[in-house]
């Protein structure tokens, strides 16, 4: 019984991380149709910020966390301004390939100017301690992660439903031309979308760094690939779909960890993606894909 509860908490924590990342991808995609492959490098920017602070002997956890998040948000907005603006109204393939190129440039810049080897970051280890929750042994990090994701989902919902800008962003996902016609500045909508996306990447960065304790140029790739898969399963462009997809992926992953024999450990991702592929045969457009209605732009 305790074992099952423990695995459920594991699945929730994994799912929370994927949901956090998938939301960051989905919010940008829903507005400008951009598949942001450079999301992983935003995470790496946060990680390298921690390295820089470490080099400056700044160990105050609040400063470390805040600057990593701010750096990720700043990097995200800068990418929008300089890399993605030229392809803003282009078709999704053009945007996707641009993002792919941007991701490649950033990875190689880290490699070129910092180091191709992993650098240890120890300033966030304090976030991780064992907790005894009603007789079940869990890690504090897992609780923080699940809690933070729940908080983010609520905050994002309030923002998207209660503020003018949030409503404009939801409208922009349906018909951007109309949003511009009623006098909302396009630049502001895009900037805020990337700001939120960067914020989510920054938060995810903190949990990823606290767990792995090191940063390297390719660190963002694996989590973001999972987040992409979560988006596809949930329905690309749908925010609830991104969250649902993230938690499904987390559950499948933990199930594989539990069920697969030890010697197949290296094949875990292969099995996870295989199961996801079966889900996609059932719903090729994802589970919660926005329905195309009469009059929508296709």
């Amino acid at each position: 019984m305790e074992y099952i509860v423990q695995q459920v908490i594991n699945a929730l924590a994994f799912g929370a991380e994927y949901a956090l990342l998938a939301l960051g991808l989905a919010i940008v995609f829903s507005i400008m149709g951009l598949v942001n492959f450079a999301h992983g490098e935003i995470i790496a920017v946060g990680g390298y910020t921690m390295v820089a602070l470490g080099a400056l002997m700044i160990g105050n956890p609040y400063i470390v966390i805040a600057s990593a998040v701010v750096a990720a948000m700043f990097a995200s907005v800068m990418l929008e301004r300089f890399a993605f603006r030229p392809v803003r109204y282009a078709d999704p393939t053009t945007g996707l390939l641009t993002a792919f190129g941007v991701s490649m440039i950033l990875q190689n810049l880290f490699l070129l100017f910092v180091s191709p080897r992993p650098i240890a970051v120890t300033s966030l280890y304090f976030l991780d301690w064992p907790v005894n929750l009603f007789g079940v042994q869990v890690s504090s990090l897992q609780l923080f992660e699940t809690g933070a994701t729940a908080l983010v989902i609520v905050a994002l919902m309030l923002f998207l439903r209660r503020t003018t800008l949030g409503i404009a962003m939801r409208a922009a996902a349906l018909d951007f031309e109309m949003v511009r016609l009623v006098g909302i500045r396009a630049n502001r909508v895009f900037a805020v979308a990337f700001l939120v996306s960067g914020l989510l990447a920054g938060l995810a960065c903190i949990f990823i760094m606290a767990r792995r304790g090191s940063v390297d140029p390719h660190m963002g790739f694996n989590p973001v690939l999972k987040a992409f898969v979560a988006c596809v399963v949930g329905g690309f462009g749908s925010l609830p779909g991104a969250v649902l997809g993230g938690f499904i992926l987390g559950a499948v992953e933990v199930a594989m960890l539990v069920l697969l024999p030890q010697e197949y450990g290296g094949m875990k991702d292969a099995f996870v993606f295989g199961i996801i592929a079966l889900l996609l045969i059932w719903r090729p457009n994802g589970i919660l894909s926005p329905r195309i209605e009469k009059g929508d732009k296709v």
């Binding site: 598949v35 898969v229 596809v232 094949m267 996609l280 045969i281 090729p284």
Partner: peptide
């Protein structure tokens, strides 16, 4: 291909990326 051709453009790309990772992990494992 039976899976890929049914997906929308973006989905097909992501699944193709997953295929790359799967095949590579089989080679490594």
């Amino acid at each position: 291909g039976l899976i890929i051709v049914r997906l929308t453009a973006i989905g097909a790309t992501i699944v193709s990326l997953a295929v790359l990772v799967i095949v590579h992990s089989v080679f490594l494992f």
